[in-house]
Design a protein around this nucleic acid. Structure first.
Length: 433
RNA sequence: GUGGCUGUAGUUCAAUGGCAGAGCAACGGAUUGUGGUUCCGUAUGUUGCGGGUUCAAAUCCCGUCAGCCACCCCA
């Protein structure tokens, strides 16, 4: 069978058999986010390239390798959005959203694009949910932001996940720590004669210069062994950051969100400060982060706004769905007809009766649909058997049978497809349906 | 971006280099006013695509596309 066109690599169609699952996950997210006072924002799928370059950081992989870039007819540079925070902040500044109160809470559900090798849980177009709480540096809001994510996963019924938190400090602490880390790793990267050693993997040798904190979560056994003895970020926090971090923990305890402290958590984007957190499902394979986030107190100023602190998270729907299906926790219902209408025509039926039954069926169908009830009828299926079989295939809750008997006495036969039980209902009382 | 595995009916998977097959699903019947269970029957193919080797290729080789796994990175 020749399929002429296919979806672009790393993208997918969401087909009817799955689309209701996505709809359900989005519905629950909107509900949870709104209960915490977040309001929905939608930004364009593309932005000026600089929006991402300035925020995420020039050296990050997202900016360096993964952005879909293009020019429009006037030669302006744009990029498909690879992450959600920068556009939201761009909009926050542009529309002066901060003027409406000292805290602004925004949530979004949007498609993101990154050019990367596809794998289970990683595609080139993917859908993210996120919450940004802008305008306060109070540690309670770090905890509250984490709680939104946690509540969302709990509401969906997800069981296998952990919340890991860390503080990567303000830019000053981070600087001091990087120096300490490089000091420690120096003797493993370089031999006494200053040549490159092979005590750590080649990737870690690049990390040493590019992003020293990444040295901590290398998966190569020999590197893991070395990083065990490495200094911990938490020992390099100044008093302000230390207090902030312990306050976040205090509020998480009060809000009853279980968490573990993982001093090795690193964020992939440059704008993060202090609190960093990840939601991880260890059953998920190598792409195991359901989402992550943290505080980014410097970003808004850096992007040209007033100096405004903020905290936020983003998560991926496809990994979430994989997790829910894996552990059999998905709770949404697939759409099922509440009523399936069947016309029964036996050999005794004359043409006139066949026609009045059809009229009755269609009247009933439109009556139910006008009330917003999902009702089905198949005008092309003739035999009673075929119609019932179809009702069963669609998992209809009830079947309404209109046959000779019903036509003559002006009532309907109502069949419960679960129990097989049948009752009758006067045609004049269809309001009761 | 690096390394590896895989690609056959709607789907899950078979087939020593020698006639492309089975389960499930679909459809029809057994059962003319009753679906799900059972039994019987019917239909189903550019073996991802393009080249090569061979008397002969789903099978071997090369290329390509796609998916998966790990790395990388991250949602």
């Amino acid at each position: 069978m020749a399929v002429k066109y296919t979806v672009p690599r790393g993208t997918q169609d969401i087909l009817p058999k799955d689309s209701y699952k996505w709809e359900y996950m989005e519905m629950v997210f909107r509900k949870v986010a709104k209960s915490y006072g977040y309001q929905e924002i939608n930004t364009p799928v593309f932005e000026q390239t600089e929006v991402f370059e300035r925020s995420a950081g020039d050296s990050t992989d997202i900016v360096q390798k993964e952005m879909y870039r293009f020019q429009d007819k006037k030669g302006r540079n744009f990029a498909l959005r690879p992450e959600g925070t920068a556009p939201v902040i761009r909009s926050y500044i542009e529309n002066n959203l901060g003027s409406e109160g000292h805290i602004t809470k925004l949530f979004y559900i949007e498609a993101m694009f990154r050019y990367d090798r596809p794998q289970s849980g990683r595609s080139r177009q993917f859908s993210q949910f996120g919450c940004e709480c802008i305008g306060t540096n109070h540690p309670y809001y770090d905890a509250e932001n984490i709680t939104v994510f946690w509540t969302y996963l709990k509401t969906l019924g997800l069981k296998n996940f952990v919340v890991e938190i860390n503080s990567i400090g303000c830019s000053e602490c981070s600087e001091t720590y990087n120096t300490a880390l490089k000091d420690y790793f120096k003797k493993f990267i370089f031999l006494p004669n200053n040549e490159i050693s092979d005590l750590v993997c080649p990737d870690c040798q690049t990390r040493y210069d590019k992003n020293p904190k990444r040295l901590l979560d290398c998966k190569i056994p020999k590197c893991k062994e070395i990083s065990k003895e490495a200094p911990s970020m938490l020992d390099y926090l100044d008093d302000k950051c230390k207090t902030h971090f312990s306050e976040v923990q205090k509020y998480l305890d009060i809000l009853k969100v279980p968490y573990v402290i993982n001093p090795k958590i690193v964020r992939g984007l440059d704008y993060y400060t202090q609190t960093a957190f990840e939601f991880i499902n260890y059953n998920l394979g190598s792409q195991n982060a359901l989402g992550g986030g943290g505080r980014y107190d410097g970003l808004i100023k850096q992007m040209g706004g007033k100096d405004t602190p903020a905290v936020g998270f983003a998560g991926g729907f496809s990994r979430l769905l994989l997790s829910l299906i894996n552990e059999n926790s998905f709770q949404g219902d697939c759409p099922r007809p509440k009523y399936y209408i069947v016309c029964a025509n036996d050999s005794s039926a004359n043409d006139e009766n066949v026609s009045s039954k059809l009229t009755k069926a269609l009247e009933l169908l439109i009556f139910l649909r006008n009330k917003g009830i999902y009702a089905e009828f198949d005008i092309e299926k003739i035999s009673l058997k075929a119609q019932l079989k179809n009702a069963n295939r669609l998992k209809a809750h009830h079947v309404i049978i209109i046959g000779e008997e019903e036509l003559a006495k002006n009532y309907l036969t109502l069949k419960n497809m679960n129990t097989g039980e049948q009752t009758t209902l006067d045609f004049d009382k269809i309001d009761e349906l």
